[in-house]
Design a protein around this nucleic acid. Structure first.
Lengths: 202, 202
DNA sequence: GCAATATTTGTAAATATATACAGACTGATG
DNA sequence: CATCAGTCTGTATATATTTACAAATATTGC
């Protein structure tokens, strides 16, 4: 069905785990041992029981003993919120993760990889205000006019991208701020990702 | 707990429905009759059974007979997106629900009850652009300076609220638009809710 | 090769769960 | 007033579900 996400799981165990997740999203409840047997053609509920024990021992599910359908899947991971980024450190360093928000994967397209907390008003006229959470899709390439997360000389900034010859411009969306013009031959510019959405919480 | 979203449900039935949805999102499985009894203090599983029958008869849940925890919520939990609102009809009429977004309940505070798709640029300087989804908490009261969803003479509008004497002002956040001044004695103004957040999808 | 783990069968309980039957009380409705 | 829907108690039972015990056949690691 799918190659093991978790290298500690066997093929069969991964299949069982996939079936549980599938059942939860499709039916709104975890399967019983008997239902697992039905799905895989087992003749004994202990076939399922054994796999559940193994999955629980490896920490990928939790079993509430004595309860019908007492299988829990671990918390869906959710998107990390990246707060203040120290100069020179990688964007996704663990120290920068404030917390995680459980957002459905299909909320943004392309898929958001993280949420960046915006500082300052340089993108005000694009409707991006101080404190907003910018949904960012990681990628190294971007088209003209896209709002990008860029790293210039180890500083992280959110701007509108524009190419012009062998130079690149990073334009703010606020007349109070000046554009940044980068000569790729003398300064390092890295595109960390493109904006795919925004979340504001009052 | 909450005023009935569905006018066909009694207070008690809404509470039961809320508890079921709460259990599904929190535990990953629907509750049993006994668990419902425990949550509400009932002494007989038939108290729960009766309510489940009523909810099923009204179409808001589905019961898979003979299965443990065989309760289904046809409406996936999530916030309804309200699109174009026809003049004179209630905001949350089913016809206005474009789709639902599965958003964690603790994303906004106070809790968002629905997402309103914003039309036009009258709130541009507040970072609210055309097409944005405004997270709205239903309530009839609002303080000065809050961004509110208001109904004036059967038109829905998003503006900044300001009281002044027995008049009320609805201020746009864009100099190209004119404020609306309401005399409560001659015109009907209803606060439908206050903004608690915003979601933008590119 | 040997031990440990993985995979599956088969049988049998203990208990969790759904659900039937009977009834009491309340408030709304025609 | 009679009736009906809503709300809840109490008892009982059929079935769904978990889970223990016993064991056979692979596969894997050392």
């Amino acid at each position: 069905m799918r190659s093991p996400t978790n290298p500690r799981l066997t093929i069969r165990q991964q299949e069982i785990l996939d079936f549980i997740a599938h059942t939860v999203t499709l039916e709104g409840r975890p399967p019983t041992r008997t239902e697992i047997c039905g799905a895989f053609g087992f003749r004994s509920p202990n076939a399922a029981e054994g796999h559940l024990r193994a999955l629980a021992a490896k920490g990928v599910i939790k079993i509430d003993e004595g309860l019908a359908r007492g299988i829990r899947l671990p918390e869906p991971p959710g998107l990390p919120i990246i707060g203040h980024v120290a100069a020179g450190s990688p964007l996704l360093a663990v120290g920068h993760i404030e917390k995680r928000l459980q957002i459905p994967s299909d909320l943004f397209f392309p898929r958001a990889d993280y949420l960046l907390r915006v500082c300052g008003m340089s993108m005000r006229d694009a409707g991006i205000l101080d404190g907003d959470l910018l949904a960012v899709h990681r990628c190294a390439e971007a088209r003209d006019g896209q709002i990008v997360v860029a790293r210039i000389e180890n500083e992280i900034t959110v701007k509108i991208l524009r190419h012009s010859g062998h130079a690149m411009e990073l334009l703010p969306a606020n007349p109070d701020f000046a554009p940044t013009i980068i000569d790729a031959r003398s300064q390092s510019l890295t595109i960390e990702g493109v904006m795919v959405g925004l979340i504001r919480r009052d």
